[in-house]
Amino acid sequence: MNNQIFKRLSYVVALMAFFAVSTQAQSPVDPNREKAIDSLALEKVKDLGKYIAIIGNKDTPFSEANRVMDRAEELFAPGSEMGVSSLASEEIKYYKVREYFQRLMALNYDKVNIEWYDVQYISDLERQPDGRYVGVVTVYQKFEGTTADKLNYKDTTKKDITIYVEKKKTQIAGRTIEFWDVILGDIRVSETSV
């Protein structure tokens, strides 16, 4: 009889411990901190928009464009792809980000102007069971290319960017520093218009 009660009690205690641990693992962090993480990730996307504008700009010296490509590439998870669309075709082509940057730099225009605007979350950063945050940000990209004989190509593309945020550790001068790493995933084209 005593043995049975003890067994049942052990189950209850084990169950309670399991719930306690799983609640702890998924407990939301300080809301202000989450807001700060949201802003940090959004800033990285805005930074990418600036980098793309620099790479595309025909006035940017080659060495500067290459340096900026390196910085921009560092924002992405390895193997990430960028969608490219055109008003002339229904097809959306996907390139690895480095290849996309190189093609962008080599575009056959004399002047290229790229601007990102309305950068916002369409799917908030959600904490995953593994502690990583995943969200989706949407941006509008206005592209304008002009040739010497004043031929113009203009379009506006809506792009969706998957964002991953995770806590990592690194060693700085012998100390372990914990930091939030924002990593961009694939960039998909969802709309193209004039």
């Binding site: 300080d30 700060a36 700085i172 930091f179 790493d181």
Partner: peptide
């Protein structure tokens, strides 16, 4: 190395990815 604090509260500090001064 350059460390950037993007949030601090209750004695804890949250850092962005460390970088170097040149970068």
């Amino acid at each position: 190395p350059v460390l950037i604090i993007f949030y601090a509260a209750n004695g804890t500090e949250d850092f962005d990815e460390p970088t170097t001064i040149t970068k």
